[in-house]
Simulated scan of single mutants.
Amino acid sequence: MNTSFKREIYKFSHENIALYGLIVLIVTMIYNFFTKTITVQSLSYGFGAIEWIPLIVITVASAIFSMEYKNNTIIMLEYKTSHKFQIYFAKFLVVLVYSFLLTVIAFLLTLMLSMFFNNVRYDWLVTKNGNNLLNGLLANLAGALIYSFFSIGLSFMLIMLVKNNAVVVCFGIVLAFFGASFSRGLMQSFPNFISTIKWNFLNMIFISQQLSKPSLSLKSHLSSLELIIANIVYGILFMVLGYYLFKHRQV
């Protein structure tokens, strides 16, 4: 397993998709900083980073598998590895580490932009309503990281199911920008079944904001702890289903 992980780290670090994802994150954050009014909310959201990180992760996660099949390098991987699970799980870990690095970079860039280029200074440590701006940013980025775990599992399952990277990316975009609205629409349409519908996978996206704004539980109908647990459970479930499809996929 250690050998597979090192091999995937080496391959991933030399693939352009990893660099492109990082550039997209940095560019979108800088763009939001210079084109939108800076508020406490925009700072706590990392200038849009909490929305872009899971989207970048979905794109990267699906791409690293689709490229293996497109270039037929998956054949060599399976030949060199004694068990398919090592290939699958090593890739999962690599993308998870990548999402963590994106989160750290988003945190540092948010601080840099707000401290060096912002005329309106915000005190990150002033406590208001029992919370401060720094804790809010950390909570939102933590939520984005947990949602990235969910997104990796979902991407791996979808790329094995539909075998088309573009379809997976489009699904990720729809999920990122309309998932919460669809989920709320379902719960409003069937109020008698909210106790069940609230656990739908579209509702998991609320975690990227609710950890810093517990009041959003009125929309998600899930507590922050329930959202954390549900995201992790969904991520594991999708990962397992994805592995089953990968294991039985013909090269």
Rank of each mutant, 00 (worst) to 15 (best):
I105K: 13
A106F: 06
A106S: 13
A106G: 10
F107P: 09
F107E: 07
L108A: 06
L109H: 05
T110V: 11
L111W: 04
L113N: 04
S114I: 07
M115A: 15
M115K: 10
M115N: 10
F116A: 12
F116W: 11
F117V: 13
F117R: 15
N118H: 11
N118D: 10
N119L: 13
N119D: 07
V120L: 14
V120W: 08
Y122S: 06
W124Q: 03
W124M: 11
W124Y: 15
W124N: 00
W124F: 15
V126Q: 00
N129V: 02
N131E: 03
N132S: 05
N132R: 09
L133V: 09
L134D: 06
L134K: 09
N135E: 11
N135S: 12
G136M: 12
L137D: 04
L138H: 00
L138T: 01
L138E: 00
A139H: 07
A139I: 03
L141R: 08
L141G: 02
A142T: 15
G143D: 04
A144G: 02
L145Q: 15
L145T: 02
I146E: 13
Y147D: 00
Y147N: 05
Y147T: 04
S148R: 03
F149S: 01
F150G: 03
F150H: 05
I152K: 07
G153F: 14
L154N: 10
F156T: 14
F156S: 11
F156K: 11
F156L: 10
F156D: 07
M157W: 15
M157K: 12
I159E: 03
L161F: 15
V162G: 04
K163L: 02
K163Y: 01
A166P: 06
A166L: 14
V167H: 03
V167D: 08
V167F: 06
V168N: 09
V169G: 12
C170P: 01
F171E: 00
I173P: 07
V174D: 00
V174Y: 01
V174K: 01
A176V: 11
A176H: 11
F177T: 15
G179K: 13
F182M: 05
F182C: 05
S183Q: 08
